[in-house]
Design a protein around this nucleic acid. Sequence first.
DNA 1: CATGAATGAGTCTTCATTCAT
DNA 2: TATGAATGAAGACTCATTCAT
Lengths: 219, 219, 219, 219
Amino acid sequence: MAASHAPARDGRILRAERIRAERRKQVLDCARRVFAERGYHETSIDDLIRDAAIARGTFYLYFPSKRALFEELLDTFLVELRSAIRPIEVDGPVPPPVVQLQENVLRLLASLEDHRHMTRILLREAAGLDDEFDRKLRDFYDQLHGLIKGGLELGISMGLIRPCDPDIVGRCVLGSIREVVASVILPPQGDAGRLPTTPRDVLAREIVSYLVWGTFRPG
Amino acid sequence: MAASHAPARDGRILRAERIRAERRKQVLDCARRVFAERGYHETSIDDLIRDAAIARGTFYLYFPSKRALFEELLDTFLVELRSAIRPIEVDGPVPPPVVQLQENVLRLLASLEDHRHMTRILLREAAGLDDEFDRKLRDFYDQLHGLIKGGLELGISMGLIRPCDPDIVGRCVLGSIREVVASVILPPQGDAGRLPTTPRDVLAREIVSYLVWGTFRPG
Amino acid sequence: MAASHAPARDGRILRAERIRAERRKQVLDCARRVFAERGYHETSIDDLIRDAAIARGTFYLYFPSKRALFEELLDTFLVELRSAIRPIEVDGPVPPPVVQLQENVLRLLASLEDHRHMTRILLREAAGLDDEFDRKLRDFYDQLHGLIKGGLELGISMGLIRPCDPDIVGRCVLGSIREVVASVILPPQGDAGRLPTTPRDVLAREIVSYLVWGTFRPG
Amino acid sequence: MAASHAPARDGRILRAERIRAERRKQVLDCARRVFAERGYHETSIDDLIRDAAIARGTFYLYFPSKRALFEELLDTFLVELRSAIRPIEVDGPVPPPVVQLQENVLRLLASLEDHRHMTRILLREAAGLDDEFDRKLRDFYDQLHGLIKGGLELGISMGLIRPCDPDIVGRCVLGSIREVVASVILPPQGDAGRLPTTPRDVLAREIVSYLVWGTFRPG
DNA sequence: CATGAATGAGTCTTCATTCAT
DNA sequence: TATGAATGAAGACTCATTCAT
């Protein structure tokens, strides 16, 4: 007899969980926007709940603290970003390295544009958030740097890349991409951005050309 | 009678002003260090006055607010940095452009190392301090970008630089330098820095080589 | 028609009421334990419903407030305790007063041990819970005091009790019992109690001896 | 020259310290009263600063937290109380033990009356304040109990005290005193107390008589 | 009846700034 | 000029209670 109610109860519970998840997501979405606009430190719980149109207590029903909410936002985003980047392969029937590089940059740009708010946060809050957050960001950039550096070392050993210090040049490559993204994403005070209309593929092409050829015109 | 005292009074006043200026400088020096260590937001007035060994009220005698002090620090530093960069000249008996570029990078690195604390702050607090500060930083980077972009455009018109989008590539150049500096200056958790021993001129040579030649090995 | 259903409905209603009463009792039992463990103020509604395994709203279906539940717990316990104490009689075929006294103490100790949780609460939360609760506790102790005082006055008039201030000595008697109980019931930090193994009748005998003879060894 | 200012500066600093100490004391005095009236848990920082007529921040200038302030109050009081109690001596030209006992009780009553507010708190907040506070109170009572118990054991061995369980009877003695004090100090709702006019020495005499002789009238 | 999501008043604490001495 | 005590607005977080489902 109790069993006859089980499905109904399960259904209700599942529904409740779905609703709960939606609510969480809604709060997360609002928070993302508010953090992007005001910055982590400048954003108070008050700002968050006003924007999400929930009560003070409701916030703490879904997140144990402002910090935890931000951490979730950051973690999710970093995972998303990492998934956009794939190590360059040289064995088997794969596109040439430069093409793979360009695809990586393109995927990265796409991912960043898809998450403009978080990108904005990532670029604004370079450091100084919190020891833990700082470490996470540094780890993320170090991973990127490690991938690039590895690619360069491989390229050098294969004679594709000119001899250079992979560590330093790896930083240069990382910085090139980062700065272009920042100029596109960080809007000068409510403006739509400096290069708002530059299509993503043009950006990617220019970046990669620069990474590969530098600026000098030979001949 | 008043006249007879004037020189003495002037002397006293001048002396007082000198003392006052020294005191200011001392506080600014301390603040620079503390801000670099703890970050702008984490630094309280308490931290500042404790480090400078002055009383609370004294602080406000010299600076109207924590914000204003930081602004002064930032302004001074940005002026200093700007002075390290000289537009590349092509007319007259001047070194070749690449050499001028390298000299610029070298001067910049020297200046940044001379002011490690402020450099640290500049890189930590990428943005999100304050709307006004954000604008200043953006203006600074925009100026750098403008100089680089101008140089690229000139180079392109002279056939020295390969045809490219000077705006985007200008961002890349800026980002390359910025990222390398960050990796040198921002210590990974109390460490002395990732590339602590790399001499300044090696850094400059690697950066410039990259800016000029990119990563590809032709032939 | 209505009449023909009446007994069935009554039965259903009665059954429902019984279930309701059982549920109430279950919640009360849990609450008693939780209050005894954590104290009234430290115990949150959350603690109560988690322990009773009921939902938040359900709690308020049975009790109008945390305060009201505690009040019920307290009232029930005080009634129970009062029933353990019987005025000492001197007329008729009754045991001698000292024996009656000892029986009272014994019944009191038994009752307190039967309701260790509430005893613990009663001793922990001496006062400061709430004006109303404070009054109730004071009333209870005043009743005890009144009984003892009356007994003393009677004893004095009969020449059994040495002349003394019944009010003050009444307080002494009350305090003697209270303190011994506290030392037995309030565990010193997770311990089982200071006099854990002292049998109830030994306690009662020692207490009564003290009440009667004091500490002095005559002769 | 600097030395010539030293005395003046010292004077100023000493004066400032005195003022600071006075202020602290004033806040402590107010807090004592408020805690006594409302209880520890019911008293908010708001209550404290309103009563002391200081600003919120000022409070934290003198005390790191509400808890710390209360701890100071409690510690000071417990030290004061302990100093009122002196072990009973039997060697040398000392008054008879009963007299020493009575003197102890008298000093204790005096001390408690001198600090009515803290006494009120001590009796109200029997436990449940905080694990640390609870431990302190228990330790205090355990010390008292230890002293009494030691006295009883000595008395028994000397044949002055009738054979009894010193542990249990020690609790009785402690409880007798405690309860009388409570009845005098804890006012029934704004009333001046139940035995308001009973002089301290009468109380002491009655208590000690009871401790020594019990209630029975021999003969 | 039962549920648990939502509420918001209330709590402690911090800190940039002011001002009397 | 120098001091540091005083201020109070603002912040993060808790929890008893309500109410729509």
